[in-house]
């Protein structure tokens, strides 16, 4: 676990690090929402303390989220999510470390909305998978908004849903990432 965190920190450092980079944007109040639609019920959870950073020069993009920070409508769902499904005591965070594939098509110096594809490693419950997802970056008066909706198959990340609640939780859940980043340059 510690090794994993160390590697992640190093990746973040190499990707975004040092004072040498002059094009870093970040936020600590990003939002990640997940939504499960199943026959018995729909479940939604939101986390509003997502760390995210972007290097507009290299296209490196990362986010990290603490699992215990997801808020559910029902307290029991939140308990099951943390204790049984994602085991947040063992795997306290999820993260994405990746890169914008079509960086040349995104002009971060000019206001506008740009379609982008981002590839990288998504880590949930200690399992890392290569993913490529579509999203948009919106540049507006010095801030950069990033939005993406993608789908995650729970079984791919070792999240097992007991048969007794299969009608309550979807096999594939919708993840919405919404971040508004400001320049770290001072």
């Amino acid at each position: 676990m510690r090794t994993h965190q160390f590697v992640l920190t190093m990746v973040l450092f190499l990707a975004l690090g040092g004072e040498a980079f002059s094009q870093k944007f970040a936020t600590k109040t990003g939002t990640i929402r997940f939504y499960s639609e199943a026959p018995a019920e729909n479940i939604e959870a939101i986390n509003k303390q997502v760390n995210s950073a972007l290097d507009t020069q290299s296209g490196d993009f990362v986010f990290k989220v603490l699992m215990k920070g997801f808020q559910f409508e029902k307290a029991l769902m939140q308990e099951h999510f943390n204790e049984n499904y994602v085991e947040s005591h063992k795997y306290p965070n999820a993260s994405f470390v990746g890169k914008i594939n079509n960086l040349s098509e995104v002009d971060f110096s000019k206001n506008g909305t740009y379609e982008a594809t981002v590839s990288g490693k998504l880590t949930i419950k200690g399992v890392s998978k290569d993913v490529t997802e579509k999203g948009t970056f919106e540049v507006k008066d010095g801030t950069i908004g990033g939005k993406s909706i993608f789908y995650v198959k729970l079984a791919d990340y070792g999240v097992e849903i007991p048969k007794t609640v299969m009608k309550n939780i979807a096999e594939t859940i919708e993840i919405t990432v919404d971040v508004s980043m400001i320049s770290l340059n001072k």
């Binding site: 600590k28 303390q49 760390n51 990290k64 603490l66 215990k68 920070g69 808020q71 306290p92 965070n93």
Partner: peptide
């Protein structure tokens, strides 16, 4: 307390 994300201790 929801934990530490290697930059901050976060509370909800």
């Amino acid at each position: 307390v929801t934990g530490y994300n290697e930059t901050d201790v976060l509370l909800e």
